[in-house]
Design a protein around this nucleic acid. Structure first.
Lengths: 320, 320
DNA sequence: TTGTATGCGTTATCAT
DNA sequence: ATGATAACGCATACAA
């Protein structure tokens, strides 16, 4: 009887023991499909993560940390995480391929891992009624919120650090500028420089695509300026590593000739000589916060919590 | 009508058009729970991956690559990947917490990501009747197989490379020795040395735990030998990086004083100076092969395919 | 407190 | 080729 498992307080000791005994004996296990069918709740959270290889977003090395934290936090509440295959049913519009997959499974909520492309099929989820948390994708709605790092604050941290170290000719390598985190990091960086009266001319701002090669190319471009900058803030660690390499190839030293600050604190940052000073994201916190935001919405009654921006932290290493 | 969707060839053009038209009009979507309940097939593959933070196995940086490849390959066949929360129902034995989760959901198959601990709750899955593919966990059964890299062959590659480079005083840092990949890599390495008549004394074999610090400690120990080795094979890249650091701290140079070969080809290997020569695992291949092995078992009729050992590849960089 | 019946949305079986 | 109906396993509302 389902009462014994779901509302034990309403059943007598006797029958409870009896039922539990029999259940154990025959190895009874509740069937989740039947349960979902009857209750319209599945104890599953959908994960929408487009890993299509034509899109590079999924390669970001700290997604694993976020994912593990997310999964652990959800598991602690008995929630499973369903990595959804897009619904490719022939004849149906592909705009809703994720939304359809979500709806077919009665998932209790959805987590969106953004690949930075603002795919319409992903955006369509926010219009649905299902509780929804996006990571690094700025999207809100009645049942939709998002979690990011405090990218603006992180940009400020980088600027303040370089200023404190006495730098005045400062440049930056940004992420792809339509992307939300890229814009925010640049804004914070620029604001902190402005407050300190340090100039940031337009040609000291070069944009990359988060990946190593673009950081390398951008730094080469920056090194051609005269006078060249004494410090560079790369808005992502991979780009910072590329920049580091360009500096070395130019026969210059880090941090003596040029100081470099990155963003993210991925594994390489600590391992690469001379150690990359970087603005660390709280990867575990992002995953955990996403789970919490979702849990807050699960009752169905509560409105979407405010977007959360998690604090970043400056990690000083040898590159500054 | 379900016939229109599942067996369109048995229904007339007329009614097909009619039903499809109405379905589109009212936005009909099949309910997966009901479908699963009726068919006992869920189009879901369970992922058993114990990310408990007390166990460090989940941190391995290339799991993300495997996971993405696995998910993509499954998605291409319309299969969703369910990351299962262990079933912690009070009063039930924890030995079967994963098995129970698997059974409750009617998943069509299971993929096991091993954390190296041979958790009994994980092993219990192989006794079930559900198709089952393990990664780097040597386990077979009527419905259970596994995918690994050819660790033995990889160990050989490392040894042959060092021998070709003219090294004769060679040492190795192994993984934790009960672990299957650790044993295999050592076996292959040892065999290739023996065939070439190069000795590998017992005190030239030190074991670590895959992580950086253990590689660092192991290398310090190896450097105390007299005469010290001219080449070291670290059976994992993180340990190799630790070893690299220990060499530098001892005031020695890589590769001039000591050559180092790693295993895995994680991101850092390419980024860290002077570039780490390493035995690359085919991460995408592992994920894809796991999906294929599972798909081969899905009909339910087929026996488990033979275990697959994917070829490894030597990537020569500056450290040798 | 406990038993019973109906519904959840789909598939599958049996007639038609 | 199509229509009707009984499972599938559980939750729930209603009776007892």
């Amino acid at each position: 009887m389902s009462r014994v498992f779901n509302t034990p307080e309403v059943v007598s000791q006797q029958t409870r023991q009896l039922v539990l005994g029999v259940a154990a004996e025959i190895g009874y296990l509740p069937n989740e499909s039947a349960r979902t069918l009857a209750t319209k709740k599945s104890n599953m959270v959908g994960l929408v993560w487009d890993t299509d290889h034509r899109r590079p977003g999924w390669r970001h090395p700290f997604l694993q940390d976020i994912l593990v934290a997310l999964k652990s936090a959800l598991s602690a509440h008995g929630l499973h995480l369903l990595m959804l295959a897009p619904d490719q049913s022939p004849g149906l519009d592909s705009e809703h391929r994720f939304l359809r997959a979500v709806q077919r499974h009665n998932v209790d909520g959805v987590v969106i891992i953004d690949n930075g492309s603002r795919d319409p099929a992903v955006l369509a989820l926010a219009d649905a009624e299902v509780p929804c948390v996006a990571l690094d994708l700025r999207y809100t709605g009645p049942t939709c919120t998002y979690i990011t790092s405090d990218n603006t604050g992180g940009g400020r941290l980088a600027a303040q650090h370089l200023i404190e170290r006495g730098h005045r000719r400062i440049a930056t390598i940004t992420g792809p500028l339509p992307a939300y985190p890229a814009v925010q990091r640049l804004d914070g960086f620029r604001a902190a420089l402005a407050e300190a009266g340090v100039p940031l001319p337009d040609d000291a701002v070069v944009s990359g695509d988060w990946y190593l090669d673009s950081g390398h190319a951008a730094m080469k471009q920056l090194l051609e300026r005269d006078p060249r900058p004494t410090a560079v803030f790369a808005a992502g660690d991979e780009m910072a590593v590329g920049a580091l390499r360009a500096v070395h190839q130019a026969g210059l030293r880090v941090p003596d000739d040029i100081a470099i600050v990155g963003f993210d604190d991925i594994e390489v940052a600590a391992l690469i000589p001379p150690g990359l000073t970087t603005v660390a994201q709280d990867k575990t916190g992002i995953g955990t916060s996403a789970a919490e935001a979702l849990l807050a919405m699960l009752p169905g009654t509560a409105a979407a919590p405010e977007p959360t921006a998690l604090p970043t932290k400056l990690i000083v290493r040898g590159s500054t």
